[in-house]
């Protein structure tokens, strides 16, 4: 990867494990990525692939039982192993987060102004009441809440879902963070609102000079707005590159499977008639079998190499890496996006 700008957030070989009654869940198994200033990084994968756990690890919000190894560096400062007090100074100030469900992510018993003010006060102890309030109103204006000066005294339940997510974003940007992690920010919202929220996030990024990590299971969400994307599967990054790389020249069958599950307008009735789900389910993260974790569901699986050797992330183009033993075959295919139509839709 030939990037001259130093990354602002750098994750190396991150692993996260949770001991449970049934065994150790290996939720994240060696994830590395860099986020550069003003970058928009899309992280894509289905639920349980470790994308949310990775972001919670960055925020230091995982439960105490989680075992974390590897390195998470923010501006060359190691976050793993930081004292709780030092970590609190980073959280909400340098790295902030927007959560999936704005219905439950806000405390129901406090006014939104109070909750915003708390976020401001946490990192600006010297602010007096007036300053906190005017900053709260300013933030609500920034995220497009109409009549912000009166809405600031409303309770969360008096806002609609989209408006609540705007308030959540206002809370996240309260202290001009350098990195904003948005974990499925639009999943719980109405489709008509989704686009507005995404657009606003990108606007804010420019205003604030922040980098955004956009976590989603929905490739359609990241399509137009990310600079770089990484696809995760079973706790690992399986493909990473520019949005164009992953969309037009995917080199890992799982990425293709994800693409196949987006509805598209097409002239070809055979290709567009039916969405193509990937058969089967992701492997259990308690006893991950050897070999490529996707092999049991993969139409390209050869049954020998794929099931014994876990493919490493290999360079398949400039700034484009993929973890697949058969990425050459994909490159040679005429229309790799049709890969899954060859297999029958599973019943």
């Amino acid at each position: 990867m030939s990037d001259e700008v130093a990354p602002i957030l750098s994750v190396k070989d991150l692993t996260v494990e949770f001991p449970t009654d049934d065994g150790v869940v290996k939720a994240v198994r060696g994830v590395s990525f860099d986020v550069r200033p003003r970058d928009v990084l899309g992280v894509v994968g289905e639920s349980g692939c470790g994308k949310s756990v990775s972001s919670m690890a960055i925020m230091g919000l995982l439960p105490k039982s989680a075992r974390i190894t590897g390195s998470i560096k923010f501006r060359d400062r190691e976050l793993i192993g930081l004292k709780p007090k030092e970590l609190r100074a980073v959280r909400g100030r340098q790295i902030a987060m927007v959560f999936q469900d704005p219905m439950t992510a806000m405390n129901p018993v406090y006014r939104v102004g109070w909750q915003l003010g708390e976020a401001i006060k946490a990192h600006n102890k010297h602010f007096d009441k007036k300053q906190v309030r005017s900053r709260s109103v300013e933030l609500l204006n920034m995220v497009g809440i109409p009549q912000a000066s009166t809405r600031v005294d409303n309770y969360p339940h008096e806002f609609s879902g989209g408006m609540r997510q705007r308030v959540m974003i206002a809370m996240a940007i309260a202290n001009n963070p350098d990195v904003l992690i948005a974990d499925e920010p639009t999943t719980a919202l109405d489709v008509t609102v989704q686009a507005q929220i995404l657009e606003m996030l990108i606007d804010l990024k420019d205003q604030l000079d922040a980098a955004i990590v956009l976590i989603t299971h929905d490739l359609g969400v990241v399509a137009g707005i990310t600079d770089r994307m990484q696809v995760m599967y079973a706790g690992k990054v399986v493909e990473s590159g520019t949005a164009e790389d992953v969309f037009y020249t995917p080199r890992m069958p799982y990425s293709i499977g994800l693409l196949g599950s987006i509805p598209v307008h097409t002239q070809d009735p055979a290709a567009g008639a039916r969405l193509k789900p990937i058969g089967g389910a992701p492997p259990s993260l308690i006893n991950v079998p050897p070999g490529c974790p996707f092999s049991p569901r993969c139409p390209l699986s050869d049954g020998t190499l794929c099931e014994t050797v876990d493919p490493p992330l290999l360079r398949v183009g400039p700034g484009h890496v993929a973890a697949c033993h058969h990425s050459d075959e994909l490159a040679a295919m005429e229309d790799p996006l049709r890969l899954f139509s060859a297999t029958a839709v599973p019943e």
Binding site: S261, P263, P277
Partner: peptide
């Protein structure tokens, strides 16, 4: 269906 169906076990539940 509003959201594109995600290739997850949700599909299986539809089938069942």
């Amino acid at each position: 269906m509003i959201n594109p169906p995600i290739p997850t076990p949700e599909i299986d539940s539809d089938v069942s």
